[in-house]
């Protein structure tokens, strides 16, 4: 299994935020979801991978080539969709295409037209007249029209209606029928990743919490629901990554499933957490209290 992206000790320091030295790989032929709460560093990481922002330290390798040395060649093979529409608003879709297309050696006009038809976009439309969803579709059309082997998307589903979100996920699944293709996309809508992602990289406060296959993650973490009295034992408390207490009991996430099963026996309910549960409890950490029900 080849690595399509390799990050080696990559960090970035800002005044109020930093990406701590981070090493990981993203696999070729799979969809990797980059999750994390807002401000976790997902966009910064994607910008560093794309060469838009320079890492403070470390090296990024894409397709086995150094990102900093082979930037232009690497980007020929990448389709990029950013979180917002950054195209020139005063231009039409056709004019924007006339600017972008000549940069790509493998630009496919037919593919672009087909995608515009599929997304119900007209080349004559002015970019400023497009809705957020339409702009995202346009971004996808540009990213998918030069036969890129790697698709990198920053929050592509944010602000999209559920119908188009499903369509987008179907489209990504179609792309993945070609095993040479790989997709990396960031999101905080974890249900999208539950559907299609193979690997999940979780960033929190600029740190990589994990980067594993979805199955490994689901096997490792356990969601425990039980009465508050169980938390009185210090040995129980210690095994939780995060706990949420409410008037009717508690919910907690642990990566020590066997241990907790032995301690609580049948007095608590153990289940597989969703990615959202993992993100929530890891991000919150410690104990939190649900709003009281009145």
């Amino acid at each position: 299994m080849n690595d399509i992206i390799k990050l080696n000790n990559v960090s970035k320091q800002y005044k109020l935020f930093s990406i701590e030295p981070l090493s990981c790989t993203f696999k070729q032929g799979y969809i990797t979801g980059l999750i994390g709460p807002n401000g976790a560093g997902k966009t910064t990481l994607i910008k560093m991978i794309m060469g838009i922002t320079r890492p403070g330290t470390g090296e990024i390798t894409i397709f086995g080539q150094s990102q900093s040395l082979q930037e232009a060649e690497i980007k020929q093979q990448i389709g990029f969709v950013s979180d917002e529409c950054h195209y020139y608003e005063h231009l039409s879709i056709q004019s924007m295409k006339n600017i972008i297309a000549p940069f790509y050696k493998k630009w496919d006009d037919n593919a672009f037209s087909r995608l515009l038809d599929r997304f119900e976009l007209s080349p004559k439309m002015k970019i400023r007249s497009l809705s957020k969803g339409m702009k995202m579709k346009l971004g996808l059309a540009f990213a998918l029209s030069h036969h890129a082997d790697l698709l990198i998307m920053d929050e592509p589903t944010a602000g999209l209606d559920p119908v188009f979100r499903r369509e987008l996920l179907d489209l990504l699944a179609e792309i993945m029928l070609d095993e040479r293709k790989s997709i990396v996309f960031s999101t905080h809508i974890t249900t999208d990743l539950d559907r299609i992602a193979d690997y999940i990289a979780f960033l929190h406060h600029g740190r990589l919490v994990f980067n594993e296959s979805k199955e490994q993650i689901q096997e490792r973490y356990v969601l425990v629901k039980g009465p508050l009295s169980l938390l009185e034992a210090p040995s129980v408390n210690a095994v939780f990554i995060g706990v949420r207490e409410s008037l009717v009991g508690f919910e907690g996430l642990t990566d020590r499933g066997h241990e907790i099963a032995a301690i609580v026996g049948t007095s608590a309910q153990l289940s597989r957490p969703t990615l959202e549960d993992i993100m929530y409890f890891t991000a919150r950490g410690g104990k939190s209290h649900a709003a009281a029900i009145t």
Partner: peptide
């Protein structure tokens, strides 16, 4: 950001 994502250094 669009310009920087194009295949140019």
């Amino acid at each position: 950001i669009v310009i920087a994502s194009l295949p140019v250094s």
